Simulated assay, not measured.
Amino acid sequence: MDEFERERRMMVDGQIRTADVTNRRLQSALLSVPREIFLPRAKHAQAYADAEVEFAPGRWMMRPRDFAKLVHAADVQPSDLVLDLACGRGYSSAILSRMGETVVAMESDGEMVSKAEDALSKAGADNVAVIEGDLKTGSQSQGPFDVIFVNGAVEEVPRAWLDQLADGGRLAVVVRKGPIGKATIFIRSGLGVGERVVFDCTPHVLPGFEREAGFVF
């Protein structure tokens, strides 16, 4: 067992299982996917820390506990089509690829798309398609989706994401309107969408997803 494998097991035992993440398929995915290969080489030593890790200016890999709890709450099934928004270098997509049937991973930056494709290939995640596009509009042509997962917080949820959920589909996202974010699951039922808050956390807000300032009189 190499050092990273040892740290990965410590992460699952010390940060994930203790946070009531009981899904065995998710635990197995977290144990099998090498988190470090989805970070710049200079950040490999931080891969399994109990903290967010900045992998590009203004972009952060979610804290392992928060990420795992949000995936757990999304209840990804083996037959699900998943949209992974703001996938970064692809770590979330690799985990989700072991949970669902097919993952569409989306990034707004072409260079990031290339890095994600390379890392996902190394991880053997051959059921992931990485695409470039506007994160706020999602990927209507690929949907509707059983699960939409968002890597980071937003201050407002774009309507386009909710519109791309299949009936019974779940949107897993952290809504952050103040110092504390609310990890929230939005669930489509027919023409309506319900929501439930599952836990508090404080991931960084994704660039461009800050609420627009209103007029002050």
Rank of each mutant, 00 (worst) to 15 (best):
D126L: 07
Q140P: 00
M99K: 05
V113R: 15
M1P: 01
S114N: 14
S79F: 08
P203W: 05
V113S: 10
S79R: 12
F215H: 01
K136P: 02
V33R: 05
S32D: 14
A42T: 09
P34Q: 00
F199L: 13
E117T: 15
P57M: 02
Q140E: 15
P34G: 05
A19C: 11
F199A: 14
I180D: 13
P40Y: 01
R89C: 13
G208I: 11
V205S: 10
G168D: 08
G169N: 13
Q142I: 00
T137H: 04
Y91A: 15
K136Y: 04
G194T: 13
L70R: 01
V33L: 09
R9D: 06
A125F: 06
I131Q: 12
G168T: 04
F217L: 07
G143H: 00
M61Q: 14
G58S: 11
R170I: 08
I148F: 09
A86Y: 03
R176G: 09
R159S: 14
D126P: 00
A94V: 10
V76S: 11
W60D: 00
M11R: 11
R17M: 02
N23Y: 03
A125G: 10
M62V: 09
D200Y: 14
V175H: 03
Q164M: 07
F209H: 04
S141F: 04
M1N: 05
E36R: 11
Q15A: 00
M99S: 08
N23D: 15
E5H: 04
D20Y: 15
M61N: 10
I187D: 06
S92R: 00
R170A: 12
V198K: 03
E155Y: 06
M11A: 13
I95W: 09
M62D: 06
S141W: 01
D50P: 02
T22F: 12
A116S: 15
D109Y: 01
F67D: 02
Y91R: 14
A49M: 11
V193L: 09
E111H: 05
Q46H: 12
P57L: 03
K136W: 00
V173W: 06
D66G: 08
G208R: 13
I16S: 04
S79V: 08
A42S: 13
A119N: 08
A47F: 09
A172R: 02
I95M: 12
V103G: 14
S32E: 14
E111D: 11
E155I: 03
R63Y: 01
K122N: 05
E156D: 12
P40L: 05
R98I: 02
L191N: 14
E210I: 03
F149G: 07
G58N: 12
V76P: 12
